[in-house]
Design a protein around this nucleic acid. Sequence first.
DNA 1: AACTCATGTTAGGGGCTTTTACATGACTGG
DNA 2: CCAGTCATGTAAAAGCCCCTAACATGAGTT
Lengths: 215, 215
Amino acid sequence: MSWSGSSEGGSGRRGYHHGNLREALIEAALELVGAKGPAGFTIAEAARLAGVSPAAPYRHFRDAEALLSEVAVRGFDLFAERLAKAWNGGRPQAVRAFEDLGRTYLAFAREEPAYYAAMFESRISQEAHPELLAAGDRAFGVLRDAADHVAATLPPDRRPPSLMMALHIWGMAHGIASLFVRESPSRRKLPMAAEDLLEAGVLIYLQSLGLAGGQ
Amino acid sequence: MSWSGSSEGGSGRRGYHHGNLREALIEAALELVGAKGPAGFTIAEAARLAGVSPAAPYRHFRDAEALLSEVAVRGFDLFAERLAKAWNGGRPQAVRAFEDLGRTYLAFAREEPAYYAAMFESRISQEAHPELLAAGDRAFGVLRDAADHVAATLPPDRRPPSLMMALHIWGMAHGIASLFVRESPSRRKLPMAAEDLLEAGVLIYLQSLGLAGGQ
DNA sequence: AACTCATGTTAGGGGCTTTTACATGACTGG
DNA sequence: CCAGTCATGTAAAAGCCCCTAACATGAGTT
């Protein structure tokens, strides 16, 4: 047989060796997780999508969890990048930029369900994949810095611990994302967009700390 | 062979027929989910724990998801019960009781990881199991009522929409539970107990709405 | 041109899912 | 009391997946 000729579907192969299997598998995994959730993804099917035998992936990943973990790491990196862009060093207005961070959090969950699922819904043991924890920390670091920056606009005697602020906002954003943005279709209905819900929550929270909320 | 005699380990059987297989399977599933996460649970192993053949569970549950869904429903019911007990109609002090609700949320995630995982980390399609959605709504109803009650202590002109309040608190509680209480061992370390983190967050939030926070 | 080794393949053991046909025995009405 | 019925169990089997081992290929190196 040997379909070594040409006409490959983008991430195809050119002969016995694929040439870029590792990347092709990551792409395939992302696609599958997006379509069927982290539980629906299988190594065998990813291999099928990449056009190789079911055993080939094991040359590049110890097991299915390792592949999923790589997807999650990339997700965290992309997430951190988007968050950093939204924050933009707190310019032009720190509080406003802080709120944008929240919108961006939810937008990521909404627009990148596959990454989001791999990152937060795939039950990967962090022990076995320390780089995952590191990638997560990089993403949280953006939020942490932003909280620092915002807190610093207050006089020292009324300044809250910025780590606590960051954790509160992260928690609310993550909770709203998990409950109302992600999850299967026809999830619980909200009377408002999740983004607006979060923005209101963040505003109420910041107001309490003495940080003027927009108006 | 026929081990139909006596001496069963609690959920044993007494002959060809188990006698209480449905319940035994639910218990087994709960145990397995607690030990290995929703992904680690299998019908075959639950059947093994119950002492029946791998096909027997299908007399009681359409498939693995249906069994897991039943576990989740029971989890939501237990959750609602605990939340209602913590709220206790808002007595003796509404705001204080409201904070207890938050502690109870996290306590549930901490003390009932198996139920919590089945409820929130098992990716069951709500379409296929509408009773799950209903059970979840019953639990959220407690929070909703509490928010109503707390909001009503404010004069109408400064009264926030109680549904929004409930959603904010639910989101923060759920986010903190998901990020810092559940998840595998050695999860991200916090500088404080998750319960205290949440309580602080709720206090800050309520304060902003003009609801005196404890002191 | 021969060698080496990363990267593929085939084959296979073991496990899970779910269905189908069959077995058992608890209950029920004559 | 006894036969019939049906819920609930079992065994067998097809299909899929995981992961490993032994072997094949061919790209890059010397």
